[in-house]
Design a protein around this nucleic acid. Structure first.
Lengths: 219, 219
DNA sequence: TGAGAATACGAGTAGTCGCTCGTGTTTGTC
DNA sequence: GACAAACACGAGCGACTACTCGTATTCTCA
């Protein structure tokens, strides 16, 4: 009898990720994108835990079995979604942020330039908060979205280091952490608020809080 | 044949809650307290969803069946725990807060008087954040802890209204919300930090952020 | 002291969820 | 056209979880 180990569904991972898997055809790559998009929608409607893999498959228009042709498990889907978010956020910020111009901008202007695209991104990608704006994540998820957090932290750190050269070391790290926490805390409120004066007021409040905090840090 | 409706386990609720149930003996009341304490521990070690009712029962030293003699379902346990937290927080704050003295205190002093017992409480009751410091709760839990949120919001609102008479209406509400969000965002970090300089630095940062924000609000 | 109420037990039930597996179809390659 | 690899299906498995039920014990109080 021919032993058939290694014959069970072996999954691919995003390129450049160490994992090996079947060579994806164009159809397969489209499917993977579909699945990630569907996951983003389902996560957005509840939470990571509450989202079922069967629901994701259904939303993507495929069977549960097909889903597992492309992702080894639920965490891998979250990881792929986190990677997509990192990439898209990079694009959105690159568009809005011109570091050279910011060098001479006021703190208000800098904050506006950073926050505005971030809010747009959160509004356009409501699944984002399921992976980002949570204080208590299941360990597996924490690992999956660690690169996302690391990336954002790095970007904020670079910005603050440029803006406040007198900040360094632990103090800088703490300031970055607190600033991110404030944004994370306010974002769900902003996204949940109805478009118009209500949301605008909350955004203004976020500006105010961040501006006041950062002004004080270097006082 | 004698129909036996209403004979299945009928549960009690905390007194003054509308629900009727069996008359609790002293033993039963002790059990209920045990269960709530056990739930607090188990919630603290993971999260509300991840905590299983069987684990709570085991921690309380009773069988799953016994647990359901006292609580109709998992949500009721969370509700009871939330009520306990409201009561204990009330005591802790009443001890530390003397509204008359605060009337003449500086903003720094007021913040210190409010924040210090809050942090002590969070350190002593690590299950608290499972019910409080979460942006996205399951709907049932939301309802269960709504009184807790309402209570805290009311207290903060009263304090801010006294402190900043020029604030009123929506602006006051928003300020209360943001202040609470900042505390909620920082608390998990503070609790997770190791005792000593690391935690102290984060607490100082929380002070700074709140102080800066509130000073700015009335600027 | 005895009857009914409250408390206690824990194996068991129904339901859910992540994931598998046997099987069939499409696509790329020669 | 033949063959393998990739893609697709969906019933259903195994593990887990909130909760139940039949039964046994302890308490209360007339």
């Amino acid at each position: 009898m021919t032993e058939s180990r290694e014959v069970t569904t072996d999954h691919a991972a995003a390129p450049g990720h160490g994992r090996v898997g079947p060579k994806r055809q164009e159809r397969g790559q489209r499917r993977m994108a579909q699945i990630v998009s569907a996951a983003a929608e389902v996560f957005a409607e509840s939470s990571y835990e509450a989202a079922t893999t069967n629901a994701i498959a259904k939303r993507a228009g495929i069977s549960p079995g097909s889903l597992y042709q492309f992702f080894a498990n639920k965490d891998e889907i979250a990881r792929a979604l986190a990677e997509r978010y990192v990439a898209e956020l990079g694009v959105a910020q690159a568009k809005a942020l011109d570091l050279e111009k910011l060098r001479t901008a006021s703190l208000e202007e800098t904050l506006a330039a950073v926050i505005a695209p971030l809010i747009e991104f959160n509004l356009a990608n409501r699944g984002f908060k399921a992976l980002f704006a949570r204080p208590d994540m299941p360990p597996s998820l924490t690992e999956a979205v660690a690169p996302l957090h690391a990336t954002l932290t790095e970007r904020v750190k670079a910005l603050l280091a440029m803006r406040f050269p007198q900040l360094a070391g632990d103090a800088l790290d703490r300031t970055v952490t607190v600033a991110i926490q404030i944004v994370r805390a306010m974002m769900p409120l902003i996204v949940a608020a109805e478009e118009g004066p209500e949301r605008d007021a909350l955004v203004a409040e976020l500006h105010r809080a961040l501006h006041a905090y950062l002004s004080d840090v270097v006082r």
